[in-house]
Each structure stands twice: as structure tokens, then as C-alpha cells.
Amino acid sequence: MRSDDWYVTEDLDRFLGHAGGFLRSRPDLHTVALTVTESLRMRGLRAYGGDEPPVFGVMERDGQVRGAYFRTPPYRLNVTPLTADETDALAAHLVATGHPVPGIIGTRETTTAFVRSWQRHTGATSALRQRQRLYRLGTLMTPRPVPEGSARVAGEKDRDQLIRWYREFTQSVGETAAEEIESWADHRIAYGGVTLWEGLDGTPLSMCGVTPMVAGQVRIAPVYTPPHLRGRGYAGAVTVVVSRAAVRAGAEEVLLFTDMANNTSNVLYQRLGYRAVADFEVYDFQGGSGT
């Protein structure tokens, strides 16, 4: 592989014109790239904040797109599945273009190979931040007993609640929000992208988000229940409602990511009918010439 098999652009339309069909060919493995680029297309290139525009990369060989990446600064590089040779060419390409790479997210095989190449090309050190598992909904199942209460789509009156819970969610997983929290809440409310489970008295108890449908897929995210309300079945109940609504709306694939260190969530989603697709890893880089 040659590094010049890769090219970089800040033009989203150009990127999607070249790589859109490739991304849609595996909507499960490319779910993040599909949903983020759709959000950027609909909301503008600064939808995720940051002082720099997003960057996009495409690998073409023999007239065919074989890989892609994107990065919304200041966040990590997100890469489609690649072979070891392709990741090495990617590392050389990124060094040549001078774009900083503070970290990477991708399938386990891809990140493992890229980390080795990035360290060799730049001298950077790496730290494994998180192991994730991608799940796809099979046959939806409702766990019993179903808790008291009901689900409803969040609206304008819930804006402050969503902002508070999304902030708590990002803090609980040790991350910063990938976009301004207020903007996230407004966007989700606009398309009905968060459902609340509320008690009989109308008190919100849990929330489940879902991304807009792109290429026949949606992704469940985020799911959050305040610590003092966990273990009562609220998260499972609201996730079932959102999953069922996605299927009824025509989603061919309903996906979600879990933290592999969180056994509770992994067991829960399998009980709901979600089945593993692939393992992903998140790495951070420090030092060297490429961060």
C-alpha cells in the first residue's frame, strides 16, 4: 500500500460523493461515520463545535473506495475497518498531511494495527481508553416484569432535563460531549430523538436516545438512568420502546455500542435481543510528532 492511495479533504460533499456508497455498503460497521456526516450535512460543519473544520479521508485503489476516515477536531480519528497494510499507509498519509491525531476509534483489528504503525511513524505513546462492542437488534424481547410507568417522546418542556442528564451521562462514561450539550438537546427535540420513561406521577426516570435513520440504520444512544434509580428496569423498558419504534419506522438495522467493562449493560441488551457484531477500541495518543 502507498500513502498516496489516501487523500484528505475538508469538503463534505466531495467526501460523500466519493465514499458515500462505500459507507452505505456496511451501515452497521460504518454507523458512526454515516450518522456524523449526516448530522454535519444537515446542521453545518460546525455542528460538533471546535475551532477547526472537520477533515475527511478516502482510500481508493483500482478505482474502488476501500476505506475512509473522519475527524471533527478536537476529537479522535474515526476509521472504517482496514487491513494492517492499509493502516500503515494511513499512518504515513496522516504524517505527510500534518493533521494531528490525538486518538483513534475503530474495530479492534484496525486500531491494533494502526497503533503499531503510528508509534513507528511518530514515536507517540498510546493508551487504551475503552473497549466497545457493537450490537445489532435481532428479535426484540421485552424483559419481565415491566416497571410501572410509560414512555413518551421528549419535547421542549424537557429541554433542561435532557441537558442535565446528557451532561451527567458524558461525565459518567468519562468523556466530554462531542457537541455543545444545549445544541445536542435542541437537535434531539427537533426530530424526536429522545424518549423518556416516566413514573405514574409523570416524573422522568430514564432516557433513551436514537440517531436519525441513515442508510436504513439507526443507533441507540445515549441510554441513561440516574444512579439512584438504576436496577429497576427503567433503561430496559425505554430501550424496548425506542427499538420497537425504530423497526416500525422502517429501520433495517438497529444498532448500539456498549462499554465492554460494563457487564450490566452488555447483559441487558442481549436480554433485549441485541447480538454482537464486532468489537471496537478507543485509543489516545501522547507525544511524538503526530499529536
Rank of each mutant, 00 (worst) to 15 (best):
V242P: 00
R144T: 14
V210D: 01
L162S: 02
T125F: 03
D160R: 15
A235S: 13
F114Q: 00
L200E: 14
F56W: 03
L140F: 09
L256N: 01
V101K: 02
D85L: 08
T122Y: 06
E52K: 14
V241W: 07
R219W: 05
T139M: 06
Y283S: 03
A237G: 12
R41S: 15
V55Y: 06
G17Y: 07
Y166D: 15
R66A: 07
L137E: 01
E86W: 00
E148C: 08
T97Y: 09
A246T: 02
D51V: 09
M260N: 13
H93C: 04
A113R: 00
F285T: 01
L12T: 04
P53V: 09
R43N: 15
S289I: 09
T139R: 15
P147R: 06
T80C: 01
R24I: 02
R133W: 05
T142W: 09
G49V: 02
R275N: 06
F114H: 00
G216P: 02
S25W: 00
W184F: 15
H187R: 15
R133K: 10
V218D: 00
A96L: 08
T31G: 06
D284I: 04
R244S: 12
V36D: 11
V8Q: 06
Q171T: 07
G149C: 11
G231R: 12
V36F: 11
I104H: 00
T111M: 03
R41K: 14
R164M: 10
D186Y: 08
I163H: 03
R14T: 14
E10Q: 12
Q217T: 15
G233I: 03
Q171R: 12
G103Q: 11
Q132E: 13
S183I: 09
D160W: 11
E109Y: 04
R219T: 04
H187I: 08
L34E: 05
Y269I: 04
T139Y: 07
A96C: 08
D4G: 05
V214T: 15
T211Y: 03
L29S: 03
R116E: 04
H187L: 14
E109H: 04
S39P: 03
P74F: 10
V240E: 08
P143Q: 12
G49I: 03
L23A: 02
A84R: 06
F114L: 04
A245W: 06
P54A: 07
V223Y: 02
A89P: 00
T291R: 05
A278T: 09
E179L: 14
